[in-house]
């Protein structure tokens, strides 16, 4: 019995690895991305915004947490691994990348999809269009304006005014 107890504990341990690893709590991210979408020239007139979460094996648990948190904020929340991304990307409006996968966001340019992530460096580097970071305890919005144009989107001046904009 003792042996099985240990096995259950070890199983629970591995089951519980890889949770929320974000600087901004997921519920706040969900609300922010949905509000930002309403200021996007393409998405503001859409009633039903669909968001796709791109994950890999190491962020599977994280993806599940994201799905739960994002579900109330979007009409539909889907998930995809990198290898299946091109086959499902057209069904969605916003593509949310896990921090480790942000460098793969350039694929969104080809399909005119808005790429977002809770990262800042990938926005500075020009991989992701919209990113979120924390500066002195306050969330800060990062926008790569060149990427935004390449993805065929535009943001209202109000949003760009509060964002840190990169080209």
């Amino acid at each position: 019995m003792k042996k099985y107890g240990w096995l259950i504990l070890i199983w629970l341990f591995f089951l519980s690895l890889g949770g929320d690893n974000f600087l901004i709590p997921l519920r706040i991210q969900a609300a922010m991305f949905s509000k930002i979408a309403s200021h996007d020239g393409v998405l503001k007139n859409k009633d039903r915004i669909r968001l796709l979460i791109v994950f890999d094996k190491s962020t599977e648990q994280l993806m599940k947490d994201c799905k739960k948190a994002f579900a109330p904020a979007f009409y539909q929340v889907g998930e995809s691994t990198l290898d299946k991304l091109s086959s499902v990307i057209n069904e969605y409006d916003i593509i949310y990348f896990m921090p480790k996968l942000a460098s793969h966001a350039t694929v969104c340019r080809k399909y005119n999809k808005l790429s977002v992530a809770c990262v800042t460096m990938a926005v500075v580097n020009g991989d992701v269009t919209i990113g979120l970071g924390v500066v002195q305890d306050l969330p800060r919005l990062y926008v790569n304006i060149s990427n935004l144009e390449r993805e065929g989107h535009s943001l209202s001046p109000n949003i760009l005014q509060i964002a840190k904009v990169y080209k």
Binding site: I28, A31, M32, L141, I162
Partner: peptide, 9 residues
Amino acid sequence: LEELFNTNI
């Protein structure tokens, strides 16, 4: 959105 960006984390 303004309130969200004033959230203290």
